[in-house]
Amino acid sequence: MKNFTRLLVAAALGLGLFVSPARATVDDALSFALEAMGKYIKGGYTLREDTWGGDLPEKEAKAISHQLFKGNDYWFCMGSDVNGSKISIHVYDSDGNLVEESNSWQDQKADGSYAGAEVKCKRTGTYFLIVKIEKSSEERTSWGLVYSYK
């Protein structure tokens, strides 16, 4: 699993948008996101090279607008390398309705945190991915987000 994750990280680092000056930390956050995505890739999802990353204060959220296609199944995985942090990702359609499946999840481990949301797209159009730092001891918490589809 570690080798697979490293491979994904190597493939993805240098490809995303990083709005944070703390690049190395955002890279780490992205590696967490990729690690979380690993099981879905093994399950037949195709990882996209597009990634997002940045840092946010606790309780602050950001929205990302994103085109999805009817019939596709998407997984969005978010990661942070800040110990004890808690993060979330949720997906809304252009009318503001929550569209993710009920199996969306959040997880904390000793060295960081993860979150995932699945969307089985029923209507082609623009969607909003809402990422948020729910809890963190840091002034700003780095985060990374990746997605896959099948």
């Binding site: 948008l17 597009d50 990634t51 940045g54 602050e60 959220a61 950001k62 929205a63 809402i130």
Partner: peptide, 11 residues
């Protein structure tokens, strides 16, 4: 990157 311009919007 051009195809990766991600609209991160502070809410």
């Amino acid at each position: 990157r051009p195809w990766q311009i991600h609209t991160t919007l502070p809410l």
